[in-house]
Amino acid sequence: MNRPRTLIVGAGISGLALAKALRDRGLEVDVVERRADGGGAIGTGLYLPANAVRALRDLGVGEEVAERAEPVTRQRIHDHHGRPLTEFEVDRVWGEVGPCRAMTRGELHEVLRRAVHEGRAPGVGGGPGTAVRPGTEVTEVTDEGAVTFADGTTGAYDLVVGADGINSTVRRTVFGGPEPRFLGQLCWRFIADDTAVPGITDWTARVGDRGRTFLTVQLGGGRVYCYADINSPAPTPPAGDWRTLFADFGGPVPQLLEQGAQAYFAALHESRSTVWTRARTVLVGDAAHAFSPSMAQGGAMALEDALVLADTLRAEPDVPAALAAYQARRAGRVAWVVAQNHRRDKARNLPTPLRNFTFRRAGERLFKSNHAPLHALP
């Protein structure tokens, strides 16, 4: 069987996961990353819902993730004063799909990077794993698989994969528009020391007015991942210290905010493109379908992309046909996640009394319905 020569542009979660999946299926792959540090993830946290944990297991790194990650067994929603609105066990949402976990992005990136670097590909001589080429930027890609790098060199590939994030060069040069749209939300993320902050366990979201949310996810080892967001008409940070926007939140929030001076800021965007393939080019992860973090499905969808694309390329030697199969398998599932994100964001922005009533009466039921189709394999 002819093995397509593949270039993966981007060494984040989606790019590394795909490199691992392709190598495990005996396919030749190169990985380039524009950042000199090899694409090391920023030092924030990551909640891994059960379908993401399942995908990591299917990628062959489930045991190492379990060793590093913290189990998440309960989810809670409180109002901004800390009064409970709903609470449930996550296995009531996910059932037999498996556990949910949390870890830092850096730790997950390191697990995948090591798997790619040290892995061996069956059927291609048992050679060493794929090395990521850091500090290597792609400036242009053509429909025929011709690639131009920032240093002026070129390369020819049977398949080019854009795994280079929401501002993807591959998407811009091959697919054109539309550009991702601003969701009207700003967010800040940081990791805090919770050893002196009692009562932080599992996953807890605290909701206020103006779309304000302060989420904590326990990471273990005295660490807690903090995520805060607020509605905004513009994708720029507000003047002054962002933490004053959450000054009226109760519970552990004030103590945690004291550690958030260097939080990572982002304006949230959503991809408007629903076409992720050309004859010899494909998009995965945020390059294909960035969306609101409301469902915490960004990483899960990226990991699933990697598995599905690797399977279709192994099953179908004709690259354009394999890419068409990939698009067909992923489109409906991603569209569901986008729709549920919109539904959850609307619920969060209901008038406060109605929102609180909704979460009290139907919080667990809403979470179950959001995630039900994701129980099936991608």
Rank of each mutant, 00 (worst) to 15 (best):
A306V: 05
A306K: 06
A306G: 02
L307P: 04
L307F: 09
V308K: 13
V308T: 15
V308P: 12
V308D: 15
A310L: 09
A310Y: 04
A310R: 02
D311G: 15
D311P: 08
D311E: 15
D311W: 12
D311H: 13
T312Q: 14
T312L: 08
T312W: 11
L313Q: 02
L313D: 10
L313G: 11
L313M: 13
R314V: 03
A315F: 11
A315S: 14
A315I: 04
A315T: 14
E316G: 00
E316Q: 14
E316D: 09
E316I: 08
V319C: 10
V319Q: 10
P320A: 07
P320R: 00
P320H: 06
P320C: 00
A321T: 07
A321F: 03
A322V: 01
A322L: 02
A322K: 03
L323I: 03
L323S: 09
L323C: 07
L323H: 04
A324G: 13
A325F: 08
A325T: 04
A328C: 08
R329D: 14
R329A: 15
R330Q: 09
R330W: 07
A331S: 14
A331D: 14
A331Q: 13
A331K: 09
G332P: 09
V334Y: 03
V334N: 03
A335L: 12
A335D: 15
A335G: 12
W336L: 15
W336N: 14
W336T: 12
V337Y: 03
V337K: 07
V337P: 02
V338S: 06
A339S: 07
A339N: 00
